[in-house]
Every structure is written in structure tokens, then in C-alpha cells.
């Protein structure tokens, strides 16, 4: 059913670290976010996934020096993030970091995440607002905190691990996690579900405390009216995932995939 597409050119290693930034209508923030990441991590490649923005997010990101992947239409945050992981996977980056395009994840903290990943014992490290001291970090509005608490409880139960910030999109991934996310990543509100899927795939996920900020400008994609839908959708997905078979996606680089799977061990 699915086609296996050949690469246009050999997927040679591009760099050591790819910073994945999904962005939808972030023209107001994206240049500053890209600049801050480049300032912090001059050696990193910055990859902005412009998810069908109606504003100039794409050209602005490209002008700021980011590898800019323009989705032909809005595919949603999950598929946008996955596109970044696909890029990292195909160009064989050993490390990938994902931050939001709205400036709420401070790039200064990325080295801290990478250090935790390098320390071993984890395939993915996720920044948690709720492990950081309360005075230092923004944790969202009260209803959102309650929702996060509920999700954290459900996911902790399902995975048997203490999960404090299931909606955090601030993460660092090694090869095994990059490969997993390139092949299988949830759709609409991916972060909580990804935690469970990765746990089930035998990947080790660790949380580390990070401070987050209130978004710098623009509008959050999750409005109050959508919150109820968010909670029901995510809870349903989490429950269905307990009985669901994995979706196997062909990424078009299967020979390379076999080789890198060996390397992941």
C-alpha cells in the first residue's frame, strides 16, 4: 500500500545536532528563536518546520538561516514534529532537540538536556516545568495545570514511571528515539501519547527540571474552547494505545534503516 521512495541524493551525515522547531503562524517569534538557538549552539543545524502558516513564518525562518521545511498545508503539530525527526533520521543526525517556535523553551537550557542525554541511561530526555522550582518557571493557567496533573496520573499509571510534565514538547533525543519518532509519532496532540508509545517500545525516557516562559507573542494553538476536546482526545488515544498495534511506516531508507538499527543497539 505504501510506496518506498528513494532518496534524491545519498543521506550523508549533515551535522551532529539538529534542533527541530515546529512553527505555525509564528512570524512574530521565529526569527528571534532561531537566532537565540544559533547563538547558544553555533554548531547545531536549526530545522524549522513551517506547518502551512498563513503568515511569513517560512521566509522569515529561511532568512534567519534555518533549514526550512515548508509543509504544503497544515498537517498538525504531530506530523510537523515528525517531519523534523524524519529529516534528522534521513541525514543521520545522532542528536535531535525539539523546542517550540513561540519562545517558551529557552535555548540556554538545551545544553542541560543534552548533558542529561549524554550521561546515558536515557534515549530521550524531556524538560519538565514541574520538577523546576515554582518561582523560576511558568506553568500555565490553573485549568491547564489541572489537566496536566490528570494526564500525568494516567501516564504514570500506564508506564509505571513518575511522569510530571506529559505535555512538555521540550526534549532531546538520541538515535534510537529519533528513529522511533521518524517511524511512529502521534497526530494531533502528540506529547502525552508519545510518552506511552516510547515506553512501550522499550525506550528509556527521563525528565529533567527546566524553566519555561510564557509565550513571547502570537497566539497559542490550544484555546480554552479546545481544552475539553484536547483532554478527551488524548485520554481516548492513551486508552486505545493499550490495545493498539503499532503502525509501521516505511521511511524510504530501509537499507540505511537496517544499518542504523544495528548501530542503535
Amino acid at each position: 500500500m505504501e510506496t518506498s521512495l528513494r532518496p534524491l541524493s545519498p543521506a550523508a551525515r549533515r551535522g551532529e545536532l539538529l534542533v527541530i522547531i515546529p512553527a505555525y503562524n509564528e512570524a512574530a517569534n521565529i526569527a528571534a528563536v532561531v537566532a537565540r538557538v544559533k547563538e547558544q549552539l553555533p554548531a547545531a543545524d536549526v530545522c524549522v518546520i513551517n506547518d502551512g502558516s498563513l503568515d511569513d513564518t517560512g521566509p522569515i525562518a529561511a532568512a534567519a538561516g534555518a533549514i526550512t521545511l515548508n509543509m504544503p498545508f497544515n498537517v498538525g503539530i504531530g506530523a510537523a514534529v515528525q517531519t523534523g525527526f524524519l529529516y534528522a533520521y534521513r541525514y543521520d543526525y545522532p542528536l535531535a532537540v525539539r523546542i517550540d517556535g513561540d519562545g517558551q523553551h529557552p535555548p540556554e537550557t538545551i545544553p542541560f538536556l543534552l548533558a542529561a542525554l549524554a550521561a546515558g541511561e536515557a534515549d530521550m530526555v524531556i524538560g519538565s516545568r514541574f520538577l523546576a522550582a515554582e518561582a523560576e518557571t511558568y506553568r500555565g493557567t490553573l485549568p491547564r495545570r489541572i489537566g496536566i496533573r490528570v494526564l500525568a496520573g494516567v501516564i504514570s499509571t500506564l508506564t509505571g514511571q513518575a511522569v510530571t510534565d506529559p505535555t512538555s514538547g521540550f526534549l532531546a533525543a538520541g538515535r534510537a528515539a529519533i528513529s522511533f519518532c521518524a517511524h511512529e509519532y502521534p497526530h494531533d496532540y502528540p506529547e502525552p501519547e508519545a510518552r506511552v508509545l516510547m515506553h512501550r517500545a522499550g525506550l528509556r525516557v527521563r525528565e529533567v527540571p527546566v524553566a519555561m516562559r510564557e509565550r513571547a507573542g502570537g497566539v497559542s494553538s490550544i484555546t480554552a474552547a479546545r481544552s475539553a476536546y484536547y483532554m478527551s482526545k488524548v485520554l481516548l488515544a492513551l486508552l486505545l494505545d493499550t490495545i493498539r498495534l503499532p503502525r509501521t511506516r516505511r521511511t524510504g531508507y530501509e537499507e540505511g534503516a537496517a544499518a542504523s538499527a544495528d548501530r542503535d543497539r
Binding site: 521512495l5 532518496p7 534524491l8 541524493s9 518546520i49 533549514i67 526550512t68 521545511l69 515548508n70 509543509m71 504544503p72 498545508f73 498537517v75 506530523a79 515528525q82 517531519t83 524524519l86 529529516y87 534521513r90 524510504g252
Partner: peptide
């Protein structure tokens, strides 16, 4: 869509 975005960038 993902394939298109990646290929367009590569092109």
C-alpha cells in the same frame, strides 16, 4: 505532505 516538504527542501 512530509515527503513533499523534505524533497522540496532537498531540491
Amino acid at each position: 505532505a512530509q515527503e513533499l516538504a523534505l524533497l522540496r527542501h532537498e531540491l
